[in-house]
């Protein structure tokens, strides 16, 4: 079961069992997005609050597999309190890492670094990315002057 250990590292399980910043709402919310990934039936809401160009608040909630929920949890810890531009930079680092590239900001990614092993499981990459893509979309939504958006990631075959 060595393969499985790479997918379900202890840190991932810890974020899954004791999620950080998971909540159904966020006071003073500026934007909220709903992203779904029909492959595994994941549904994720990400809410953000931006103050003076800084990501000052983030809450996520939803129904998803351990990888998607743990990834959103680890992400929330990594990005909270950072300037929005910096957050977008981290999103890009994480995205590249999930596509098998060496991430540039290991220290800033923190616990999110453990998802590097998930890149070896192609069907789970989307799960790990869901929260991050939702966060990027939430920031884009806010910058467009909107306050909500809905995105469905591509579908499966049977």
């Amino acid at each position: 079961m060595g393969e499985l250990d790479a997918l379900y590292e202890e840190i991932i399980l810890d974020h899954y069992r004791s999620p950080r910043n998971r909540a159904p709402g966020l006071s003073g919310e500026d934007a909220q997005v709903h992203h779904s990934n029909p492959l595994c039936g994941d549904e994720l809401d990400v809410r953000i609050r931006i103050r003076d160009g800084v990501l000052d608040g983030l809450a996520y909630d939803g129904d998803g597999c351990s990888i998607s929920l743990a990834s959103a949890s680890a992400m929330s810890v990594a990005v909270l309190g950072r300037p929005v531009e910096d957050v977008l930079g981290l999103v890009e680092e994480f995205r590249l890492m999930m596509h098998g590239e060496q991430p540039g900001r290991a220290d800033d990614l923190g616990d999110s670094m453990v998802f590097e092993g998930v890149a070896r499981f192609p069907v789970r990459v989307k799960c790990a990315l869901l929260g991050w893509m939702a966060l990027r979309d939430a920031i884009d939504t806010f910058r467009r002057g909107d306050d909500a958006n809905d995105v469905t990631h591509e579908d499966q075959h049977e």
Partner: peptide, 28 residues
């Protein structure tokens, strides 16, 4: 346990099952 996690645990044991909406979203 999310179905996708069940699928991964079973895959590690050589067991192939299908997880998802089975192309029946209205039924789901």
């Amino acid at each position: 346990v999310h179905p996708h996690d069940v699928g991964a645990m079973l895959d590690a044991r050589g067991v192939c099952v299908r997880v998802g909406h089975h192309c029946c979203k209205p039924l789901m």
